[in-house]
Amino acid sequence: MAVQPNIPPSVGISAPTGIWTTAKVVEVRHPTPDSVILRLDVQNRVDHLPGQHYVVRLRADDGYVAQRSYSVASPPSDPLVELWIERIYEGEVSGYLAEVVEPGDDLEVRGPIGGWFVWDGATPAAGVAGGSGVVPLIAMLRHAKVLGRPELLKLAVSGRQLADLPYPEELAAAGAFIALSRTDQPGRAAGRLTAAELRPLLGDADTTYVCGSAGFAEFASSLLVELGCPADGIRVERFGPSG
């Protein structure tokens, strides 16, 4: 997030924004040793749009606070807010969320936040994500399904290996194109996404959402521009290091 969009200043975007509140942890899952899924019952919740994020704030006894932003994986219709969190090496927030949090805990959260990288399900879209950048696209995917319009959203995702991707089964079941950079797949040698692999996504898409590390986002958005995608139709969410 916190970012600079390529957009005419006259274009107004308004997305819901929530204030600090308390969330009860309802469910904790560890899909891999390096990730955790938290399902939260958010008090006085403001419904989000797919693509938005929440901030989680941790507070020590001495008043020290640490906060990080995490994309929401759940669709607005889900009664709970689902966050998929990558555990960063020595990350004080992600490490706490992965190791310590249990169902029944209260967390300080703020959300939804972010008015740019959002999709309301009204127009055809494409999503291209690397690694943990998949998470906001999962919210879009689930939202399209809830709307009964799965054909509106086409996805291509990339990771070193399948296990590095959030929600790999859900992506595969939805027909997302999956490119693994370090693993050979049937019919595809290990390697980065190619322009030819992205081209089929772009037919109808009004907006293409790119999410991942700074390096991935630069690479993927450049491929899209090469393919003739107008720069103002590409919305990018670059994940910085976030421990």
Binding site: V3, P5, N6, V65, E218, S221, S222, I234, R235, V236
Partner: peptide, 20 residues
């Protein structure tokens, strides 16, 4: 400042668009 951490020699890129 409160709530911040030292990123060291890195400089994260956080823009929301195609780099012009």
């Amino acid at each position: 400042p409160p709530g911040q951490y030292d990123v060291g020699s890195d400089w994260p890129v956080l823009t929301a668009e195609v780099t012009p």
